[in-house]
């Protein structure tokens, strides 16, 4: 059981809360408190829009423990509209093939379960976003 470990990341997992550097306006996700760009303190919270596009992706058929029931699943690096890259599964793909550049948006889904008695861990995934 690792309840605290996942609980303390709720803001990131559920709402993509990162940081913005007050000195150089660099947007940071995940939050890291020290701006990698200018080296200054960067603790101002910033909630990302959850919009982005696929930078790259692959399909996982040989999963690590805890993810076997999801096989096959698609993992991507998503470029958020605000700049940062984030690693996340893609979901709700339907029949349309994913491509580099496919627009996506963040949704909340089950990431994994810790066995029969364990807790379910929820967090961000991304699904294709279609022009409204």
């Amino acid at each position: 059981m690792e309840v605290s470990r996942h609980w303390r990341l709720n803001k990131q997992r559920y709402s993509l809360v990162g940081e913005v550097c007050p000195h150089c306006e660099h947007k940071l996700f995940p939050p890291r408190d020290i701006c990698p760009d200018c080296g200054e303190d960067a603790r101002d919270l910033f909630e990302f829009s959850g919009k982005g596009s696929v930078y790259s992706f692959t399909t996982v058929s040989q999963a690590p423990a805890g993810f076997e029931e999801s096989v096959p699943y698609t993992v991507a690096i998503v470029q958020l509209d605000e700049g940062p890259l984030v690693t996340a599964q893609l979901t709700d793909l339907g029949d349309k093939p994913v491509e580099i550049g496919t627009p996506v948006e963040m949704v909340t889904r089950k990431l994994r379960s810790d066995g029969d008695q364990g807790m379910l861990i929820y967090g961000y995934k991304f699904r294709p976003a279609f022009a409204a």
Partner: peptide, 18 residues
């Protein structure tokens, strides 16, 4: 931020390769 999404080094290499 990576492991929790079900990735492994193979996944990472695949995304870099693509």
């Amino acid at each position: 931020y990576e492991g929790i999404q079900g990735i492994t080094p193979t996944t990472q290499a695949a995304m870099l390769m693509r």
